[in-house]
Simulated scan of single mutants.
Amino acid sequence: MVDLILSYQWELFIAIEVLSFASLLLFGIVRYLFDKRNVSLLFLFCFVALLVLEAILAVFIYGETGEISKFQIIITVFVVYACTFGIFDFMKLDRWMRKVIGGWRNVQLLSAKDIEIMNRQKDPQYMAKKYRWSSIAHLIVFVGFQIAFWIYGTGGAAQSLEYIKDLSWIGTENVMETPYANETIYGISMVWGIAFIADFIYSWSYTIFPSNSKG
């Protein structure tokens, strides 16, 4: 059984993610289409249970292998996202489901505040400003942690500057060639770096291409 889990850890992770998203969709369908509010809560509990299961899977794999791999790092990112920014994305999904299902049923499921929020999200200037601030906040947090990681890994700011002058270490699999103290911090930083770049480009696209950023 253990060998099976180790062999199919990625497949299990993907299956859990698919089931998690399906749980959120079923929550909306049962709650707003069939008007079964109490029953719909079961799907929210299911989502939370799957999130916990995902974390348990990462801990289990670590316990069996004794090392932190990209698998644990990616699960950590997903779990942290679900507990932070994911909440706001769920609220957006919930409003979208109420709008669509309300249209099917020919009833108004959105509150006045919901409509106001959705209208603001169609305003390119509002969205551009919102994402500029969020990207700057992400930049400050990211750089702050990287400075701390580098100083911790190299033992001082002076040594860290050498790695800024020569960036050839980026992408290497040998952590000893990097300014990071260990593979765990290095792995987290690399995954976070990719996510940061993608988020930063996406956020500023609302400013650079406002006409394509409506909705």
Results as ranks from 00 to 15, higher is better:
residue 2 V to F: 08
residue 2 V to P: 02
residue 3 D to N: 02
residue 6 L to V: 13
residue 7 S to W: 04
residue 10 W to Q: 06
residue 15 A to C: 08
residue 19 L to S: 10
residue 24 L to F: 12
residue 25 L to G: 13
residue 32 Y to N: 11
residue 34 F to R: 15
residue 37 R to N: 13
residue 39 V to P: 02
residue 41 L to A: 07
residue 42 L to D: 13
residue 42 L to Q: 14
residue 43 F to G: 01
residue 43 F to P: 03
residue 44 L to D: 02
residue 45 F to A: 09
residue 48 V to Q: 09
residue 50 L to E: 07
residue 50 L to C: 09
residue 51 L to E: 08
residue 56 I to G: 00
residue 57 L to R: 01
residue 68 I to W: 13
residue 70 K to H: 14
residue 72 Q to K: 07
residue 74 I to S: 07
residue 77 V to D: 05
residue 79 V to E: 08
residue 80 V to R: 06
residue 91 M to Q: 15
residue 92 K to S: 07
residue 92 K to I: 00
residue 97 M to V: 02
residue 103 G to Y: 10
residue 104 W to K: 04
residue 106 N to E: 15
residue 106 N to K: 14
residue 118 M to W: 05
residue 119 N to Q: 03
residue 121 Q to Y: 05
residue 122 K to M: 08
residue 122 K to V: 02
residue 125 Q to K: 14
residue 128 A to N: 12
residue 132 R to G: 07
residue 133 W to G: 11
residue 135 S to W: 14
residue 135 S to D: 00
residue 138 H to I: 09
residue 139 L to E: 06
residue 146 Q to C: 00
residue 146 Q to F: 08
residue 148 A to G: 03
residue 149 F to I: 08
residue 168 S to W: 11
residue 170 I to A: 12
residue 171 G to H: 14
residue 172 T to G: 01
residue 174 N to S: 11
residue 181 A to M: 13
residue 190 M to D: 05
residue 193 G to C: 12
residue 196 F to L: 04
residue 198 A to P: 04
residue 202 Y to P: 01
residue 205 S to L: 11
residue 208 I to R: 15
